[in-house]
């Protein structure tokens, strides 16, 4: 499964752990919006993913 993990702020330990669990079994892409945003790419990433998780 392709999962897009969108991070709006730096992930804390729990969020990091959950992303690692996803990475162990799935094709995961992490987008760190707090480091800068490319919205065109983000739209493509959102629609190419099977699941999107918009973390805090």
């Amino acid at each position: 499964m392709k999962i897009l993990e969108i991070l709006k702020s730096e992930p804390d330990e729990t969020v990091q752990k959950m992303i690692e669990v996803h990475k162990a079994e799935h094709d995961v892409k992490v987008v760190k919006l707090y480091e800068g945003a490319d919205y065109d790419s983000l739209v493509d990433d959102i629609f190419e993913a099977d699941k999107v998780v918009s973390w805090w």
């Binding site: 499964m1 999962i3 729990t14 752990k17 959950m18 992303i19 669990v21 996803h22 079994e25 799935h26 699941k51 999107v52 998780v53 918009s54 973390w55 805090w56």
Partner: peptide, 17 residues
């Protein structure tokens, strides 16, 4: 557990943090 929640959440159609 956090690990089980991480796996379980992927079973849903929509995830809303």
């Amino acid at each position: 557990s956090v690990e089980d929640m991480a796996k379980k959440m992927l079973e849903y159609d929509v995830i809303v943090p």
